[in-house]
Amino acid sequence: MGEFDSIRPYADAEVPAVLARLLADDVFLGILTQFRFPRLAKSFGWLLKPLIAYRLRKEFIGVNSVSALQDKVEPYVDRSIEDATDGVTYSGVEGLKRGSAYLLLANHRDIVMDPAFVNYAVYHAGLPTPRIAIGDNLLQKPFVSDLMRLNKSFIVHRTISGRREKMAAYQLLSAYISHSIVNDCESIWIAQAEGRAKDGDDRTDSAILKMFHMSRKTEPFGDVIRSLKLTPVSISYEYDPCDLAKARELYIRATTGSYEKAAGEDDLSIALGITGYKGRVHIHFGKPIEDECEDSKQLALKMDQCILGDYRLFPVHYLAYEMWAQRDPQLEVPTAAELFGKDELDTAKEQWQKRLAACPAEQQPYLILQYANPVRNQYRVKAGLAL
């Protein structure tokens, strides 16, 4: 057994056996049937599941590597993205060089689509896709774990409670990330903080940056970070499909002090995040960090400046900021009308009003907050003010 077998993605040699296991998994086939035939699944699922399994076996016959699987799945991913967006653009990807591996640290808004959009940009630039960090809290069903590990995902253990066990898990994770980049020359994607930024306030958790250094403590912190080619990535959604659910959660937390997730809530968030309307999406890849940062806290500030500074702001962000009761008096923020043309702005106003109308009045401040925070943060970065 290899050192990283408990967390690593599946290797090429494992692909055929894992695919066979997936296509024999009744729960997985049931979900596919429900997704493909929502009206017929309940009454005729017993008939449709074997037909779907047969069709998939036929389609994936001969697929015996991760790259071949990704090539096969890519048209479906592209179609899903095209159906749920008004277009995806990306910038800075030309700075990623073939033959180099990068530690891509990104803001986190959506469980599945954040890394999917990064993969989309990298794949269409003709570069190998990164390995993706995913929390074990999202891998409760065996077929989900199989699916994610087939797509170059590796496991981050978040459900461990004991301090000693946590330290061992972080040590292993740190060693794996370093091994992937330095030895395997395989890039890594990881979110800047655990959990999605539900209030739109993207901040880098210094503990994650500290973890990168854990397995190489005998080396200077700055040298390790440079060797990993730590690269900030800004993922900007015009509209968040889960914004109303996030506003509800923020409101409940603010009024009761806590929030308990319902059974299957993460599954619903994943489904809505994939299929829900996002408007335009932009992904920006910054340059690898070369600055001399003495520690993880200093580096976190640098990452925040890069991620927030390169975040693409859309008209809806400015419309929300104009409504926000907590606008920053130190900042000179132009209005949406000063920045965008009439047609674009009218379309944004119509969509924004629909979202506000669908949100209960008491929760609306938390909806506004999600779209206004990126404006505040970016203009504070531009003004050289502390976040």
Rank of each mutant, 00 (worst) to 15 (best):
227 S>M: 04
178 S>P: 00
185 C>F: 02
211 M>A: 01
190 I>M: 15
225 I>K: 09
192 Q>Y: 01
183 N>L: 07
202 D>Y: 11
210 K>C: 09
229 K>W: 05
196 R>L: 04
215 S>Q: 06
224 V>T: 13
198 K>W: 11
192 Q>C: 08
194 E>C: 04
196 R>Q: 10
216 R>V: 04
184 D>T: 01
188 I>N: 01
186 E>A: 12
204 T>Q: 03
190 I>Y: 02
229 K>R: 15
193 A>Q: 14
227 S>D: 11
193 A>S: 15
205 D>L: 07
229 K>L: 12
215 S>D: 13
225 I>R: 02
202 D>K: 07
193 A>T: 12
221 F>V: 13
193 A>H: 09
201 D>R: 14
185 C>L: 09
223 D>Y: 03
188 I>M: 05
221 F>E: 09
207 A>S: 13
220 P>T: 05
224 V>H: 01
205 D>Y: 02
185 C>Q: 04
191 A>T: 04
191 A>E: 06
205 D>V: 06
197 A>F: 07
215 S>W: 08
181 I>F: 00
229 K>S: 14
211 M>Y: 10
191 A>P: 12
184 D>C: 09
178 S>K: 06
183 N>Q: 12
223 D>F: 02
195 G>M: 03
191 A>R: 02
218 T>D: 14
213 H>S: 14
210 K>P: 04
228 L>K: 09
226 R>T: 06
228 L>S: 07
215 S>E: 08
210 K>I: 01
186 E>M: 11
182 V>I: 10
193 A>G: 03
212 F>A: 11
189 W>P: 01
221 F>G: 08
222 G>M: 04
178 S>I: 00
188 I>V: 08
222 G>N: 15
222 G>T: 14
211 M>T: 03
203 R>E: 11
201 D>H: 15
230 L>Y: 06
225 I>E: 07
224 V>A: 06
218 T>K: 15
221 F>P: 03
211 M>D: 04
223 D>T: 14
218 T>I: 11
188 I>P: 02
217 K>N: 13
198 K>Q: 12
220 P>N: 07
195 G>P: 08
226 R>F: 12
190 I>A: 13
220 P>C: 07
226 R>A: 06
228 L>N: 02
196 R>S: 08
187 S>K: 04
199 D>M: 09
218 T>G: 10
228 L>A: 04
227 S>G: 10
207 A>E: 01
207 A>T: 00
222 G>A: 15
191 A>F: 02
224 V>Q: 05
229 K>N: 15
191 A>D: 05
191 A>N: 05
